[in-house]
Each structure stands twice: as C-alpha cells, then as structure tokens.
Design a binder for these strands. Structure first.
Lengths: 215, 215
DNA sequence: GACATAACCGGACTGTAGTCCAGATCGCTC
DNA sequence: GAGCGATCTGGACTACAGTCCGGTTATGTC
C-alpha cells in the first residue's frame, strides 16, 4: 500500500504549500473526506495515547471519530496505514534533517562535510531517538500486515540513504552496499528493538546496533 | 509459550529413547491424545505442502485431521506452536551439529578446534541453509503471534551460541557480546530474510548477512 | 469388571481485521 | 439552481484466530 503519493487516499496528508494546489492532476480532496480524515487521525491519536496502541480496535477508532468503519479502512488501508499517517510528520522531519540538515546527520556545508561512517553513526543514533519514542506506533506500522515494513515508503528512504553511505565509505571487500544496507537496517526493525530493549535496555541496544552498522 | 519442556502439551514430541519412559514424572500421554497429535501434524504437513502455509486455516487443519478445533489449539497453543512442532526435528539436527558435530560448525576434535569467527561464519551458513528451505514455516513460527520469535526456545539457543562465540572472539572494543548477539541475529529473522531474498536473491543475502555478522 | 478421577474432546462462541455495495453527498457544468 | 457523474459513506457481512465448557473417554484402583 501507499507507494503512490499521487492520490488523496491511503496515508496521504495534503501539503500545505500553495503552489502545489495548482497541480490539478490529483483532484482536490473532497471537503467531507478531509473533515473525516482529520477526525479519524485525532480520534486515533487520543485513543492510542489513552489505552495503548495494542488495545485500540479499528471499530473503536471509527466510533470515536463518529464515522463508519469502512471510511477508516478505505482511507488508511489497514491498521499499519493508520500508524504511518500518524507518524508521517515526525518522520518527515527526520528525513529532511538527513537530506538538508547540518553535519553529521545531514550533508553539512562545503567545508564541514562529514565522513560517511560518521553520518551512518549519526543516522543510527537519530533513528533510534525517533523510533524509541514512538516504538509501539512504529511497531504497529511495521507488523500489522505481514511484510509491511519493507513496503512502506519510509523503509525505502532509510535503505537508500544507508546504501549511499556504505557505497561512499566503500571498503574494497564490501561490494554490494545495497544488500548490506538491508542487513544493517535489520536490527532497527521495531519488532526487534522492542524485544531487545525489553531484554538489555536502550543503552546497550544502541551501542550494539551501532557496532554492527559500523562493522 | 512452550518454554516448559516438562508437560506433554504444547510443541512436545515424545523422545524415542526407551530410558526416558522410566521417568514417570510427566504421566504418560494418553493413547487418544498421541493419536490425535500425529493426525494433526500429518494433516498440517500435507495441507501446508499442498496449499502453502499462508493459505491454510486452523479450521482446515482440524477438519483434515478429523479432530475438533479446540484439540488443535490446546495441544499446540497457536499457529506458531504448530509450526514449531513441525520444524522440531530438523531444528534439533542443526542444534546437535552445533553442539557436538565436526568443525567448523561444531567444536571439532582436540586438535582441529576452529576459530570462533570461523564457527560463526559456519553457523550463519548452516542456519541460512536450514531456514531458506522452510522459510514460510519458520516465518509463521516467528510472526503468528507478536514477539513470538524471541520467546521460542530455538531463538534462545541461537542467541546463546552466538554470544559465546562473540565472547570467545572478544576483540577489545566489543564488550557486551550478549547485546551484540541480538543485533547479529536480527538479519536472520524469517520476516527479514523473506523480504531480502525477494529483493536481492539468496546469494547476495547470504554474503551480506555474513559480512555483518563477522564485522 | 465396576468405579472414580483426571485428562481429553470438539463444536459453539467471541472478538477483531478487513470487505462490500446501495445509497448519500459533493462539486462541477450549463 | 438543476442535473449529473465521480467520490465518499457506513453498517452489515465474511473470515479467521483463539477461548470455553459440558460431555466423553482413558487409566489406575479396589
């Protein structure tokens, strides 16, 4: 799901920019649809905060939003899609810091460009900061449907970023940064972090994941 | 589930050894129960092979075994438990090869003892050989219930093995082999392998996982 | 062989994710 | 402001995992 950023459905949230409204291709979201989308997101956020992500049913979200169940599902696809939509904003902040922000997480300026492995370490740290705060939500977005993690756009983004860093770091014996990036990202799966944090705590988790990522 | 190897329930399969029958503590499994256990396992194996693991419902397994649904669930706990029971034998072969087999996978004899990292590489290879053959089944055993992977006995075994090898390899900057072992095992999760193999194929997957494990 | 008891059996029942479609609503056009 | 096609809506419906408990059967004892 949600590989298409074109339509107004799925985990889509409208860009505030005014220029974008001129692009007529995706016909503007209908007013009632927009109202319902906001209602569902608000209701979901409130219920998740109050009862815990795992204890909230889709029926409950629909009821709290004053909306039919079908509406929730057509708009967000499934429970994972709802989680993705809720995470969307924070996730984008992190992605922008990576693309345009200061070193070592971002590419930095002309004269303080960080080494690839330095950026990789910064990415692991920043990602863990982000994901550990929203662990239950991210976990739901990755596990509600089988294979969801590898289909959502965010994973593709992290994967590409890590691939490029590994390629730039390029030690001779490590060809295939593409495959390597998948393996490096594996310990960052929410399901894995959930289990690992429960067992050894966040600090040891962080160090171990860093050590693996940096070889 | 199934952390108790004491009772005759759960993913239990009776050891063929005759000595063990003398231990009266777990009162012998009733004849009808044993019959049904075999019937369920046979039916499940046949259905899985014919229709694919994901397309077989627990109702179908019960019906094919000529047994009520409650029987299947009381005996195996859940879908993951059924998968574990089916994998049990092959898994034990691998575990024994690790504990007692020849080098480099096992500890070897007195004079051909392999280096820890050599054993680690052999373990990764052997584990991938095992899991890629039964990928769907292992995946079900790890994902049917949330967090199942980290609860089943097999994971504890792999984790302990890797921990000991990392400790033995002990490079000075890597304290905490326990946490490191979790991170090393992360790319071996069935869910992850499923996605990665689909994307880059088994050979590149194997090389990447090895590279990460061996730092 | 009859009895008591513990273990087992199976199908009806519950809870939840996700589907479907007949009708309501919107927003555009003339 | 009436007509009309596209889009949206919501609740009834399906499918499946997992639970429950009254009835049944096996096994040890007298």
């Amino acid at each position: 799901m949600s590989m298409d950023k074109t339509g107004p459905r799925s985990g889509y949230s409208p860009p505030p920019g005014e220029l974008l409204q001129l692009r007529s291709s995706p016909p503007r979201e209908r007013a009632d649809a927009a109202r319902n989308r906001v209602a569902v997101l608000d209701a979901a956020a409130a219920l998740f905060a109050r009862d815990g992500v795992d204890n909230v049913t889709m029926d409950a979200v629909a009821a709290a939003a004053g909306v039919g169940k079908g509406t929730v599902f057509r708009r967000f696809g499934d429970k994972a899609g709802l989680a993705v939509a809720l995470l969307d904003e924070r996730e984008r902040e992190l992605q922008e810091a990576i693309l345009f922000g200061p070193a070592p997480l971002g590419p930095g300026g002309h004269d303080d460009a960080p080494a690839p492995l330095e950026r990789l370490a910064a990415f692991v740290d920043a990602y863990l900061d982000y994901v550990l705060v929203h662990l239950d939500l991210v976990r739901m977005s990755e596990t509600a449907a089988p294979g969801a993690r590898y289909r959502i756009g965010a994973y593709r983004f992290w994967h590409r970023h890590v691939t490029l860093l590994l390629a730039a770091a390029g030690s001779p014996e490590h060809t295939d940064p593409d495959a390597l990036a998948h393996a490096v990202l594996a310990p960052l799966a929410a399901e894995h972090l959930h289990a690992m944090v429960a067992e050894v705590g966040p600090e040891r988790t962080r160090r171990a994941v860093r050590a693996v990522a940096l070889r």
